[in-house]
Simulated scan of single mutants.
Amino acid sequence: MFIARVTGSVVSTQKVASMTGHKLLVVEPYRLNGETRDELVTTGRTFIAVDTLGAGEDDYVLIVQGSSARLTPETSKLPIDAVIIGIVDSVHIGKQNVYDRE
């Protein structure tokens, strides 16, 4: 599981029938700044993830990949590799708040 920021969406009008109606979002993984440990910084990569929660652009989300992506009731029969399983409200490292949604 990892934290990512939603940076965009993907529209695909032609796809396998099981994917019809599923929202696809572009997500960019983030990690803790290793030097200062006081902020989240991008890894510079992007993925496409199925959104099951209604996340929006600039939201930080929790992502699972691989076989774990097919373990939710909403995705158990889908041909996917990444799914959004949570919208992040805040991130605390030690006693420091490194992200707050508000």
Rank of each mutant, 00 (worst) to 15 (best):
R37P: 02
R37G: 01
D38Y: 10
D38E: 13
L40R: 08
L40C: 07
L40Y: 09
V41T: 04
V41Q: 00
V41N: 02
T42K: 04
T42G: 05
T42S: 12
T43M: 11
T43R: 12
T43K: 11
G44C: 09
G44Y: 12
G44M: 04
G44T: 07
R45P: 04
R45H: 13
T46M: 15
T46R: 15
F47S: 14
F47Y: 15
I48T: 14
I48D: 00
I48P: 01
A49H: 10
A49F: 11
V50G: 06
D51P: 08
D51K: 12
D51C: 09
D51F: 08
D51N: 08
T52M: 09
T52R: 08
T52A: 07
G54L: 04
A55K: 10
A55R: 08
A55I: 04
G56E: 02
G56Q: 00
G56S: 00
G56T: 03
E57M: 09
E57Q: 11
D58I: 14
D59Y: 06
D59E: 06
Y60D: 01
V61K: 05
V61Q: 07
V61W: 03
V61A: 02
L62T: 09
L62W: 04
L62D: 02
I63Q: 04
I63N: 02
I63H: 04
I63R: 04
V64G: 02
V64A: 01
G66Q: 10
G66T: 02
G66F: 03
G66R: 14
G66L: 00
S68N: 09
A69V: 07
A69R: 09
A69N: 07
